[in-house]
Design a protein around this nucleic acid. Sequence first.
DNA 1: ACAGGTTGGTTAACACTGTTTACTCGACCG
DNA 2: CGGTCGAGTAAACAGTGTTAACCAACCTGT
Lengths: 245, 245
Amino acid sequence: MTQATRRDRGRAETDREIRQQARALLVNDGPQAVTLRAIARELGITAPALYRYYSSREDLIHHLRLDVCNDLAADLERGLAEVAADAHLARVLTLCRGFRTWALAHPQEFALVFATPVAHDDEDARSVARGSFGRIFLVVAARVLATGTLSLPADSTVPVALLGDMTAFRAELLAMLAESGVDLPPELLGLGTAHLLLQCWVRLYGQVALEVFGQVPIVMTDPEALFESVLADLTGQFGLTAGRP
Amino acid sequence: MTQATRRDRGRAETDREIRQQARALLVNDGPQAVTLRAIARELGITAPALYRYYSSREDLIHHLRLDVCNDLAADLERGLAEVAADAHLARVLTLCRGFRTWALAHPQEFALVFATPVAHDDEDARSVARGSFGRIFLVVAARVLATGTLSLPADSTVPVALLGDMTAFRAELLAMLAESGVDLPPELLGLGTAHLLLQCWVRLYGQVALEVFGQVPIVMTDPEALFESVLADLTGQFGLTAGRP
DNA sequence: ACAGGTTGGTTAACACTGTTTACTCGACCG
DNA sequence: CGGTCGAGTAAACAGTGTTAACCAACCTGT
């Protein structure tokens, strides 16, 4: 059995090297440089050999996307590990800052998973991002919600046209939390709160994408300050005004 | 002279056809399909002939970016033309909705000009978007500001760390307005207002990018409703609560 | 222990791509 | 009319994704 295991491990090993090299090419020379022949060249093999691992180049970069998501998740968790488990607000802030920092440090990867046009019905592609770390966001958000110290928006704040979708969203959030072993009293996650969480994601994503893609309409001497200002705004909407300088 | 003109017109003509075909390939088959040989094939010429017009493929798609911006601007102006010049709030709303509608209808083009990673010092590439229609947004926003009927945020609302950048931003906005022939009393565009305008752009861009790239964490039965909700939130921040349903 | 299949890999080839070079051929100009 | 210029072409080079045929190890079943 050790033979079979060893062989599998060898295969898994080169598989890892393939994606690792692909990743290196992506970050160093941009997406158009991640080419089968270049990857093979770095590994000392020939291009067709890669077809033993991936059915096409597109298949490879799809798996690359998953890799990137996992690495981002690991990166965020690593940053989170340095914050006390009960410092809920600090955890939320480091998570948001970690997301921004990672995105700015890895623009190609960010563009690959967060800014690639995707067909509206390709549910598989759409779920890749939120599966791996949307969950992380949700969990730390739930933990701060669970303290019950926040001033949450009433359900009446959500526009009537959104009521249907927000109830579905709320249910999905609660399901994901239960699945993650976080028990949040459902009454602490009302429709207004779900709506606010969605708005938070919109603004966080928007601010980060804006910076990564250089669409801020002015060169900022201190880009972090702008980010911190939206962060303060977001936490303020939850009644958290801790330490606005 | 008519000969020279005719020759130039012939050249300009094929130039237009080149970009037109490139555009068609982009929208139909994605960015990787916009290839020199395919363009030439459609035009009935050979690929090297394109080098009489553009020094490289990259050069061509750079001009394509400019084309897209111009088309977007024209599209927005067209939509704006159908709204009374003094219906300032309605103009702002149609502008925002027009931007979203265009982006959802032209995801490839949107990705090309609004979501392509760009070096932070490439001022040329960064300014391409804001030059062509950031001005449009600014002008209609200024017109509604000029009415003086809004409740604008005090300068004290902008975080101290942003004061420097916001004064520069405010100056740039005023300069652009003067250049566009819109005279807005400077006291109606304070630092707080500049900051709020920037936040509006962040949220508008973020919401649109989120939808275009399928990063909304739930399938919405009515995506417009979500957009309208942030729109209502934005106008609400200016004290405009006209017609929230 | 040996035949047989599986598996990771190679080589050769096809149809593409961007780009350069050398060359036409026709329209313009003096 | 001779000369120049410029749009376009043909040929070529290097590099791409992908497929087909083949090869040499290895694992397995008898």
